[in-house]
């Protein structure tokens, strides 16, 4: 099993919700951001194009950060997720330099001044100190919400399918641009997407084998505009639907 993510660049709208969701999920200090969006605006061949790349730790199969860590604080789990043990990290920043994707954050004191420097911590921050403590002086990064995955799987849930076992950014995305699943399973949602839509990774030349893939393409061109049944019924909210009684009366004559 190797957890991976596929990000659909045709859908990403640069809304930054994934970043905000991560900040909430992990009580991130003010100036720390685990996932980021890269704004790419090109003019290749006179054809302007605007793309947003959501990036986060690629959880590389052959991760340079694991190798350079002098204390084995950064390790790779059997499911492919690269995790940092904050109690082992000495804060040498070697991994920050060595990560070709620049996806590691060293948490220095100045990056954690509190949301409102000079004021008392907010209630949310105070709770965060207990619920998800961050150690100033260590390096941190996206961990694919490993705590959600572990807690969810313990309950028998499937990451990528069940919300409670899926990374927070994947859940929150309005465009549903992110898909999460098992890369080792050739029939999983992510593997199918990568195969069908020619998924690619960033900087494959490094040979790190990232677990975050991207797919791109065009919008539109769909053959059928027929709505599937679940869309026609109003999906999970149907039981709450209710029509204005006046309107009902007016339709009665015609049905």
């Amino acid at each position: 099993m190797r957890w991976g993510m596929v990000i659909d660049l045709t859908k990403c709208t640069r809304c930054h919700a994934c970043v905000a969701a991560c900040r909430i999920e992990h009580f991130l200090p003010l100036h720390v951001t685990w996932p980021r969006l890269l704004a790419l605006e090109t003019d290749a061949g006179g054809k302007p194009e605007l793309t947003t790349f959501p990036v986060r730790c690629n959880q590389c199969k052959d991760a340079p950060c694991v190798k350079v860590c002098p204390t084995e604080a950064t390790t790779q789990r059997p499911d492919g997720i690269v995790v940092i043990d904050p109690n082992k990290c000495i804060g040498c920043r070697y991994c920050v330099i060595a990560c070709p994707y620049q996806n590691r954050n060293f948490l220095s004191k100045e990056k954690d001044p509190g949301y409102f420097p000079g004021y008392e911590l907010t209630g949310f921050e105070k709770k965060g100190k207990k619920l998800y403590p961050h150690q100033v002086g260590t390096t941190e990064k996206c961990n694919f919400c490993v705590e959600r995955i572990d807690a969810g799987m313990e309950k028998g849930l499937i990451p990528g399918k069940d919300r409670d076992a899926t990374p927070a950014c994947v859940n929150i995305c309005q465009a549903r641009a992110m898909t999460f699943g098992n890369l080792d399973d050739p029939d999983s949602n992510v593997s199918v997407l990568i195969r069908d839509r020619k998924g690619f990774t960033l900087q494959p030349e490094y040979g790190t084998e990232p677990s975050v893939y991207y797919v791109d393409g065009r919008i539109g061109g769909k053959e059928s505009n027929k709505a599937p049944l679940h869309a026609q019924t109003g999906s999970n909210m149907q039981h709450l639907s209710s029509v204005d009684s006046d309107a009902k009366k007016r339709f009665d004559g015609l049905a």
Partner: peptide, 12 residues
């Protein structure tokens, strides 16, 4: 001194 957590130096 540069290390974020100098006292954990021995871990290396």
């Amino acid at each position: 001194i540069y290390l974020g957590k100098p006292l954990r130096f021995w871990r290396t």
